[in-house]
Structure formats: structure tokens, C-alpha cells
Design a protein around this nucleic acid. Structure first.
Lengths: 230, 230
DNA sequence: CCCTCAACTGATGTATACAACATTAGGCGA
DNA sequence: TCGCCTAATGTTGTATACATCAGTTGAGGG
């Protein structure tokens, strides 16, 4: 009698959030394309085109775009289109000043002491930064910076702080890539500086000195911003 | 030939964001109902019912609910419904600890010196707090606290900080009202303390001492949280 | 040649029917 | 009477047709 229907009541993880998960992937995907300048500022993101590309209808696409608009990465105007936002200096300045403060809170509010696995993950990041010296790539650099940020986010258990820091990071992550592309800053120099930063952070992490981690990051965020304003 | 169509090209404010504005109002409205416990935790918010109540379709309602879900005020489950979230102690604790830090940043990062009009607005808030002593009302108290928060938000020009502080505030604003309703804290005592806080803040504002404003608020947030954990 | 305006095009916003899903009530048999 | 299975119901998620809006283009008149 069990042949007629295959209900499979025993499933390790039924994952009733299949739809939610898909939306999450699409969101992260479009966000990544914006931050990697695959979708440059001003570009129109057609809901119809995205829907066709992903093989779904406009409805779930619109939900993702609405979230991206909340996050300040796109703006939708009725009758015109959905355009990737540009980042002006004033806004960028405000975000950076706030990030400089939040990065300190990340190691003060609900700090999580790094374990061996974490140190290994971070060591891999440092290795990548050294590899960039022999094979410079602005895109790979941006990806490394993104992975580093997300890794260091695991040092705090404060969920609201994590989400806010993440929103702020992706809000201005593309600025650096823009500056490199337009040759306003030197790629090789940035790679050298970044490798040193990761080395410094690795040393502080091995000592378990999270306070030092926060201040090292703060200093680098500040200097990185200072080098950009050409 | 102009009789057939009434285009009215001359309008003071064409307001092309009529739809956007409506969504904003609906969002603020539902958010207020949740924070005022008109929609208590666990209550199911039917999209169909809300759409019928507002005389529109489910589509714009769903957009608002999706945003509220991003803000942590509701959770939607496929096939079940959209329920008002509950706030557990751990989450509340994390939010309060973060708010204590952000309230300091609000008067440090991009401070705006209060002008005469601002002082007058704040004076009105203090008057309301004194009026509450003769006519105590938990609901009016919550509304006053909300207005006070939004007013003090104008002391910083940092847009990202403003949006984040606002999100955090509304995330846990209903906790206090819950505690009063369940008689875990004394309403009259809270009103007295709050009136004193507004008096202290008014004095600091009149002196233009924004640093004092931040620290006074920080202390009151901390003590308010301490009084709540029964 | 230039200005005006009206229709066209393509975009987002909305309404609605349908699909997928979870819960519940009820019937049927052991 | 108890347990299981099935159908019904109500929910959110999706697809799609339509409404609304803004930019564009081209024809017509001065």
C-alpha cells in the first residue's frame, strides 16, 4: 500500500525553505555582481531579463531587488527601471566613519575567542594575499577582502552587530575596485599593505588579543579610506 | 480637444512616489501596531485580511511584510502564515548592548548642534512626560518614548547610523510595554524616572553639550534594561 | 529648419489565478 | 475505542495579465 505514494517521512533535512534559500542565493549573487562591478553603477537591471536568465518569473526577482534597494545597492523608479546606485563621497565617508567604530565593537561586545580551526582559515587567507603578489588581480583582491571580512565577522556573537557590519561593508565594497580600475590607487602597493595587515592580524589572533585585532583593523580601514580620496 | 482627457499637467507636487509613499505609511503603521502590542507576539497577520482592510491586493502587502521580516518583526512560513515574532532575552540583551554603544556614536560621529526649534520640540516632549504623571498610561508612555527617540535621532547627520539605530530601537521597543502589562515593572516609577531623564537631557541640550546627551542616554538605556530582567 | 505633440515602447507597480505546503477535521477499519 | 489515512481548508509562494508611468521617436505644422 506504500507503493502508490512516496511520502518519505524520514528525510534528514526536509528543507522546507527551498524557496527562501533560492532567494538568498540570488540576492548574494546579484550583490556580488554589483560589488565586483560586473553590474557597474548606473546599469539598468531589467526584472524581465533577470527572470528569463534564472528561468523564473518576475515575482521572486522583485523581492530580491526590493531587499537590495533597502540595502542601498539599487534604486527602482516606476516607469524608468532599476538602476545600480552610485556611491558619492559624502555617503562613503559616513559609512567608513561608522565602520571604523563598529569594527572595534566587534571585538568588545560579544567576542568569540578564535580556535585552531579559525586560525587555520585565517592562515589560508594570508597565503592567498601572498599569492596575489606574484599574480596581481584586482578582482581576486576584492574577493579576498570579502572573504577576510566575512571570516572576521565570526569573532563576534552579537547577531545585530554582524548583520549591520555586513550591510555597511557591501554598501561601499565596490569603491576600492573602482579606484583601482581608474588607476587612482596602485594595486601592487595595496596588495603589499594588505598582506602586512593580514600578517599583523594573524599575530594578534594567535595571541588571542582581540582588542589588538579591532584596533589593527580600525587603523587599516582609516588608512585605506585616506588613500582613496584622490 | 482637451475635454476628452483630464491630464492636469500642472500639479504643485506630482509626487511620482505615490505608491512608494503608501508602502511607507503601511510599513510604519503595521510596525507601530506591533510595537504597541495591538499585534501581540505570535499573532498571525493574514495577507488576505490586511489587503481587504486596506482595500488593495496582496502584492504591495507582501512587500511590506517582507521588509518587516528583514527587520525581525515578523516571520513568514510557507503554508503556515506570517506571525509576529517574539523577543527572547538573549536577542534583547544583544540589541541593548549594541544600542548602548550606538547612542554614544550618535553624538560623536556627525553631531548636529540643536537649534532653538529643536529645543522647543524637546521641551514639548518633557511637558508630555510631566503630564503623564497625572494621567498615567503605558501606551502614551510608549508613544512618548518613540517620539523622543525619533527626535533625538536628528542630532546626528550620519544617515547609516540613523537607519541602524532606528531598526534596533523598533526591534525591542515592545519589550518595555510587555513588562508593564505583565506588572513586572512599575509604571509610575518608570514615568518619574523618564521625566527626570528628559529634564537632564534638556539641560544638556540647552548647554549644547552633546557628549553629555550621549552619556545620559547610555546610562538610562543601561538602567532601563537592568530594571526589566525580572 | 525647428517646435509641438501624440503615439509607441519598455519599465516598474498592481491585481489575480494558480501551485506548493502545512495543518486539521473526519471517516474508515482494525 | 484507538489509530491511520484522506480529504478539505487556509496559508504563503509563484506566474501572468494588466495598469501606470516615463522616456523616445517620428510625423505634422508653423
Amino acid at each position: 500500500m506504500a507503493d502508490t505514494t512516496e511520502t518519505e517521512p524520514m528525510d534528514m533535512m526536509p528543507e522546507p525553505l527551498r524557496a527562501r534559500e533560492r532567494a538568498e542565493r540570488i540576492h548574494a549573487d546579484i550583490r556580488s555582481r554589483i560589488c565586483m562591478l560586473d553590474y557597474p553603477p548606473g546599469m539598468k537591471l531589467s526584472e524581465t531579463a533577470l527572470a528569463a536568465e534564472l528561468g523564473i518569473s518576475r515575482t521572486p526577482i522583485r523581492r530580491v531587488l526590493a531587499r537590495l534597494e533597502d540595502e542601498g545597492l539599487v534604486t527602482s523608479v516606476h516607469g524608468v527601471g532599476t538602476m545600480v546606485t552610485n556611491v558619492d563621497y559624502s555617503e562613503m565617508s559616513q559609512v567608513y566613519r561608522l565602520r571604523k567604530e563598529l569594527v572595534l565593537l566587534q571585538t568588545v561586545l560579544d567576542p568569540i575567542q578564535p580556535d585552531a580551526a579559525f586560525l587555520q582559515r585565517f592562515q589560508a587567507l594570508y597565503t592567498r594575499s601572498e599569492a596575489l603578489k606574484t599574480a596581481p588581480s584586482a578582482r581576486d583582491f576584492s574577493l579576498l577582502d570579502q572573504d577576510t571580512f566575512l571570516t572576521l565577522l565570526d569573532l563576534t556573537a552579537n547577531a545585530p552587530l554582524r548583520t549591520m557590519a555586513e550591510r555597511l561593508y557591501f554598501r561601499t565594497a565596490r569603491i576600492w575596485l573602482q579606484q583601482v580600475t581608474s588607476s587612482h590607487i596602485d594595486l601592487m602597493q595595496e596588495i603589499d599593505i594588505y598582506a602586512r595587515e593580514l600578517q599583523d592580524l594573524l599575530g594578534a589572533l594567535e595571541l588571542g588579543d582581540l582588542d589588538a585585532v579591532g584596533h589593527i583593523r580600525r587603523g587599516h580601514i582609516s588608512m585605506s579610506f585616506a588613500r582613496m580620496r584622490v
